[in-house]
Write a protein that binds this DNA or RNA. Structure first.
Length: 563
RNA sequence: UGGGGCGUAGCCAAGUGGUAAGGCAACGGGUUUUGAUCCCGUGAUCCCUGGUUCGAUCCCAGGCGCCCCAGCCA
């Protein structure tokens, strides 16, 4: 963030085991400045789980007056793409963070990493192996049995150097040889059983093109790149905990310019979605969603398109706390963080999603009047607006029941309700089509109730939203529900079988109050009684398309569910 | 008898020797021209069993449960 550092008592310091560690490092005089980095691999779009890492790394840099790099971990050209680099940059910026200086890439250091690889060979701490992938797996042993040394492990330094240089020169086929660290094939930690440092991959790299045919592995690139960038605290998720001894081994055995330390915390899991790039990729590639930015996706771009404010994501992450215990956060937590700022800021508007025509029989034909409606009851400064009212209006089909139960506060035959900011109306007649479906309501209004209050003090239980038929703007509205029907789809053998078939509902015949024709892209408004909505780029000036960001809390639905 | 982690309310968690913060959810109640918002209220023998101690969620020992690692992915 570009905000001031939180030295003020108004900003209680954030506490977790990583920040505590940093404080103690700073107190011990181990480095005077904190440097972190957010290191995505450009092989997919960022999702809400990455937001945790982004907020952590950039947040810490800001809190401790340090700096944070955006660094692409682009060491595997077979999977990476410029599209992802561009999307990731945009998402980090949109979330509200500024990286230090230029965007960094692990590939910026390919030459230096190569030199260090030779350094390791010269120190007899790395060797070129000719084993095939399958053979290597056999030699590696198992979780409970030690591995065996490769037959090529004792090649001389000169031969290794020669072979490695020829690997770089492109003399060998992909996969024919690798460079391995010489550590301990009997280690209980499999990452220390002579891990691969370089492999031959002939794939065009988004940054370095075809300059290289050998690429460093994550393990060889990450820590050393941290060291080059002066990263002091290299924060990553728990699955890398086992790699830390290797991370440290490389730092100790190479003439690196600084000594970064790795710390691990638990990754974010959330209910009713998946947060693995592999699965998200599958959803996109197999067409289960419309793309990485489909509003049902837990991606940053999907959330953005759905209308979720960046501040909501930051707030959500800030409520999570950093720990080492793995858990799954309920989606309701995120939803709360979405509603909170929107409730304060979103302008109230009226939109009828499933229209039912209402004719107000005692209202003069051809007459139109403007009623004044509050833009935001939470913010008087938001003012009011005029909404046209006339003899024929639309109300929500759900707001009428021919034979309503006792707890139904809305319209029914003979019942009186309030039309928000307008008048009380009473249903006098129900018109049906041949199939018996209600197609129109006949009502009367009480002219004395203009504005929504009765001079005689009588009360109504229900207030309905409405739109004047002749003034209505036609629109498409897309309602989104969770993508999956089970809390933890990732735990299912075939997670696709748990996809929610009703995750997207498209309503084409929606009626909006005229003011809704002027909603700017990126602006979120509240459709009263329904939820928060924003325009979708698929829409046009003629027929806007609105995405439902999130529904309002609905305690009536709970009452109904209970019966 | 592989290695590395984690176990505090439905969920996320703070506390780490003095007798259990906070948020989300849920459930009551009040206000209300959004059944929204807002306001008030309600929840824990801290995985188990021993031990040390005046006293243990916190220390020690032994269990149990869950997660990660056998890619030339990150």
């Amino acid at each position: 963030m570009t905000e001031e550092n939180n030295t003020d008592a108004d900003f209680p310091e954030v506490r977790d085991f990583i920040r505590d560690q940093i404080r103690s490092d700073l107190d011990d005089g181990r480095g005077e400045k904190v440097v972190t980095r957010f290191p995505p691999e450009p092989n997919g779009y960022l999702h809400i789980g990455h937001a945790k890492s982004i907020c952590l790394n950039f947040g810490i840099a800001s809190e401790f007056a340090g700096r944070c790099n955006l660094r692409f971990d682009d060491t595997n050209p077979a999977k990476e793409d410029q599209e992802f680099i561009d999307a990731i940059r945009e998402d980090v910026s949109w979330l509200g963070f500024d990286w230090d200086g230029d965007v960094k890439y692990a590939s910026d250091n390919f030459e230096q990493l190569y030199v260090w690889a030779e350094h390791l060979i010269e120190a007899d701490k790395a060797f070129v192996d000719d084993l095939t992938a399958e053979e290597m797996r056999e030699y590696r042993g198992t979780l409970t049995e030690p591995g065996k040394n490769s037959p090529h492990r004792d090649r001389g330094v000169d031969e290794n150097l020669d072979l490695f240089r020829r690997m770089r020169a492109g003399e060998f086929e992909d996969g024919a040889r690798v460079l391995r660290a010489k550590i301990d094939m009997a280690s209980g930690n499999i990452n220390l059983r002579d891990p691969v440092l370089y492999r031959i991959v002939r794939a065009s790299h988004p940054r370095t093109g075809d300059n290289w045919c050998i690429y460093p592995t994550y393990d060889f690139a990450h820590g050393q790149t941290d060291a080059i960038e002066g990263v002091t605290h290299s924060l990553c998720t728990l699955e890398f905990e086992d790699h830390r001894p290797l991370y440290d081994w490389l730092i100790e055995n190479l003439p690196v310019p600084s000594y970064p330390k790795q710390y691990e915390y638990s990754r974010l899991n959330m209910t009713y979605t998946v947060l693995s790039k592999r699965r998200l990729m599958q959803l996109v590639e197999e067409g289960h969603v419309a793309g990485w930015d489909d509003p049902r996706m837990p991606t940053i771009s999907g959330l953005r398109r759905r209308g979720v404010p960046a501040a909501s994501i930051r707030d959500f992450i800030s409520r999570l706390a950093i720990s080492k215990s793995e858990g799954t956060v309920e989606a309701a937590m995120l939803e709360h963080c979405i509603r909170e700022p929107l409730n304060d800021s979103a302008l109230r508007r009226m939109a009828v999603l499933r229209p039912l025509k209402v004719v107000i029989e005692n209202y003069p034909e051809g007459q139109t009047e403007d009623v004044e409606a509050t833009n935001n009851p939470r913010d008087e400064a938001a003012g009011t607006r005029s909404v046209p009212f006339s003899r024929e209006i639309y109300i929500e089909r759900d707001d009428f029941m021919e034979d309503p139960p006792k707890k139904f506060f809305r319209l029914g035959p003979g019942r009186e309700v309030r039309l928000r900011a307008a008048y009380f109306i009473t249903c006098t007649d129900v018109i049906k089509d041949d199939a018996g479906e209600v197609v129109e309501l006949r009502c009367t209004y009480d002219p004395e109730t203009r504005g929504g209050d009765a001079p005689d003090g009588r009360k109504v239980k229900g207030t309905l939203h409405w739109v004047s038929a002749s003034h209505a703007v036609d629109a498409e509205v897309r309602l989104y529900s969770p993508l999956f029907v089970v809390e933890n789809p990732g735990a299912t053998a075939d997670f696709l079988s748990t996809l929610n078939p009703a995750s997207l509902e498209v309503l084409k015949d929606c009626k909006l109050e005229p003011e809704l024709a002027n909603v700017a892209g990126g602006q979120v408004v509240q459709f009263e009684r329904l939820g928060y909505f924003c325009t979708d780029p698929d829409g046009s000036a003629d027929t806007p398309i609105f995405n439902r960001t999130l529904g309002l809390r609905d305690s009536y639905a709970k009452v109904m569910a209970k019966g």
